[in-house]
């Protein structure tokens, strides 16, 4: 048996965009979509839910407990539960990952709103803001840094978790791992790992950039 090199560049070249569903570029695209949809859905659900938890304090503990239980379940278990409902589709991966994102994002929204200093909230009331406007113009904007920090965690973990979906054939770049293991062929595995890491770093970098643009006022402020 000849020594198998760690990376066969010709394999990458042949499989980057061969037009089929297993092309690396197609898997990459799949991966991006399946990683970002849960974060997007998570944010859309976490915002009102987080607001509700702030408005009705008693909601917060049960909600967080429920989300943490979900979070503690191995993703594989969740996948198999949803497999029986949604079958071998993307939803079977996206729905559990949405729950994972929620487990991070709901506390982030709640903590974000709690991070609004009391004098700021009170002076908004005293200036004559009505509740909705106060939320939209003062409280949510001031909560942005904390929410974005949660969003970074949710995004990166979502990018890495998508690969587990490979077990049901919906794992984006994770499919490369299965392919590699089955054939004792390292190149797809290396390609998968590298692309996932690059994707995670890139997404995180974009969010940091977004934070800089959105909240120029928060730099060096936290210690004050």
């Amino acid at each position: 048996m000849t020594e198998e090199p760690l990376v066969r560049w010709d394999w990458i070249a042949r499989n980057w965009a061969n037009g089929g569903p297993t092309a690396i570029s197609a898997l990459l695209e799949n991966h991006v979509v399946m990683a970002f949809l849960p974060v997007l859905f998570g944010l859309v659900v976490a915002l009102p839910l987080g607001l509700a938890c702030v408005r009705w304090r008693w909601l917060y503990q049960p909600t967080v407990a429920l989300m943490n239980v979900t979070y503690s379940l191995p993703s594989l278990v969740l996948f198999s539960i949803f497999l029986s409902i949604t079958g071998l589709t993307r939803s079977t991966v996206v729905i559990p990952l949405t729950f994972f994102a929620l487990a991070v994002l709901i506390p982030a929204v709640v903590d974000g709103l709690a991070s609004v200093p009391d004098p700021v909230r009170q002076s908004a009331v005293a200036m004559g803001f009505r509740p909705v406007r106060r939320l939209l113009r003062v409280e949510l904007p001031v909560a942005v840094p904390v929410v974005l920090a949660g969003l970074r965690v949710a995004t990166v973990s979502s990018i890495s978790l998508v690969s587990v979906g490979a077990l049901i054939g919906q794992g984006g770049l994770g499919n490369l791992f299965i392919d590699g293991w089955q054939r004792q062929f390292y190149t797809p595995i290396v390609v998968g790992i590298v692309l996932i890491v690059v994707l995670a770093v890139l997404a995180d970098g974009l969010l940091v950039l977004a934070q800089r643009l959105l909240t120029p006022w928060s730099r060096a402020r936290r210690t004050a």
Partner: peptide, 22 residues
């Protein structure tokens, strides 16, 4: 109406309470 009332009364709070994002 509270909001109308408050817009007609200046208020200065301890620690200023400025809006950090503005």
């Amino acid at each position: 109406d509270p909001a109308t009332l408050r817009r007609g009364i200046g208020y200065v709070i301890q620690q200023a309470g400025l809006f950090p994002h503005r």
